[in-house]
Amino acid sequence: MGVGCHALGQVEIKLSSNLLQIGGTTIHLPVYAAEDLVDPIRVITAQGVVHAVDSLFERVYVEALDGRYFAPLTDPNIPLPSELSSLTSEELKVLQVAVKDGSPGTLSYNLRTRKWILDTDKSRVIEAANLRKTDLCDHALKIYQDLAREGLNQTPPLGDDTLRLLREKCVELIENFTLDNSVMFARALALSAVFGIRLSQLSWFLSLAEASPEPT
């Protein structure tokens, strides 16, 4: 089970008995016996840090990074987010991200050197521009959802084929690993013009510029 708390900002995650606290929210977990099969629970923060919840041993620990939300730091002199700075491990596996050229393997990120590592070719230099996000969720596809809603509410509304093409273009845009918010906003605005979508409520569209953290 995965719990996303992207909209909550930076939160503290604690486990006490069967009570999982995520910021001001408390989730009551089942009480398991030692012989029970326990479904893994993971909490993904707004910074893309994946916390594993071990209810049997009552502990929460950083397990990985989620590439859909993680903004990699390129300068080793810039401090890490607080939830990463205290880790003893220098490398973390990165989920939901792949090399654009389709190379097989699992990607990791070195917190000390701020470098990417591909486990099938560790000598290869991997730049953020070589990567793409995968398994985009509804939260990540908010740009498409909002543009589609505007397109369906206009007269005449967008047809099915146009909506499919719009979604493909939005996925290509969102999969990009290096675009900052201002560029993302400008390209989304260009898409609305290309598809003839009249933005009746510009306020919601301007909020897209604040939808995800700026890469550093």
Rank of each mutant, 00 (worst) to 15 (best):
V60A: 13
S86T: 12
K115R: 05
L189C: 05
L107D: 03
P81I: 14
L84R: 10
N130A: 02
H139T: 07
Y61E: 13
Q201S: 09
E210T: 11
S55K: 08
P213K: 14
A46D: 12
D180C: 11
L73T: 06
K133E: 03
P215M: 02
E150S: 07
L163M: 12
L173A: 01
G48D: 10
L65Q: 15
E150R: 03
D180N: 13
K122M: 05
L95V: 00
V3K: 12
A46F: 04
A128E: 00
A209N: 01
A186L: 03
P40H: 02
A209G: 11
T178S: 09
P156A: 06
A33T: 07
Q145H: 09
A209P: 04
T155E: 15
I22Y: 12
G196T: 04
E214R: 10
S182P: 02
V38F: 11
R167C: 08
N130R: 01
D39H: 08
E150C: 01
N110Y: 07
L165I: 10
L56R: 12
P156V: 03
D36L: 04
K100W: 03
W116L: 12
A34C: 02
L173P: 05
R167E: 10
C5A: 15
L147S: 13
N176E: 05
N77H: 14
A46C: 15
T155F: 12
T45M: 13
D121R: 13
G67V: 08
T216L: 15
S82E: 15
C5P: 12
A211Y: 14
Q10P: 09
E150N: 01
V194A: 09
G2Y: 15
R187K: 13
F185Q: 02
S192M: 00
V99G: 01
L65M: 13
L206P: 04
L202G: 05
G159H: 07
F195M: 03
E12V: 10
A190I: 04
L199Y: 01
T113E: 12
T26K: 13
T26N: 11
A190R: 09
K100E: 04
R149E: 02
S17F: 08
L189R: 08
A190E: 06
K133G: 06
F57Q: 15
L19H: 10
Q145A: 09
L29C: 11
G67Q: 04
K115M: 11
D160W: 06
P213V: 06
Q145E: 05
A211F: 14
L95A: 10
S17P: 00
L158K: 08
K142E: 01
V31C: 05
V31R: 09
Q21W: 07
F70M: 10
A148G: 02
H51M: 14
L19T: 14
N130M: 01
L141G: 01
P213N: 13
A34M: 04
D39W: 08
L141P: 00
A140C: 08
V194W: 03
N153C: 01
C137S: 02
G9S: 13
S123A: 02
D135V: 00
S203Y: 09
F177Y: 14
Q145Y: 06
P72W: 02
I117G: 06
V94S: 06
H6I: 02
G23V: 14
G2C: 15
A33S: 11
S123F: 01
G196M: 04
P81E: 10
S103T: 15
E172A: 08
R68N: 09
I174S: 02
L147A: 07
A211C: 14
Q154Y: 03
E63D: 08
D146F: 00
S82G: 12
L20C: 03
I22R: 12
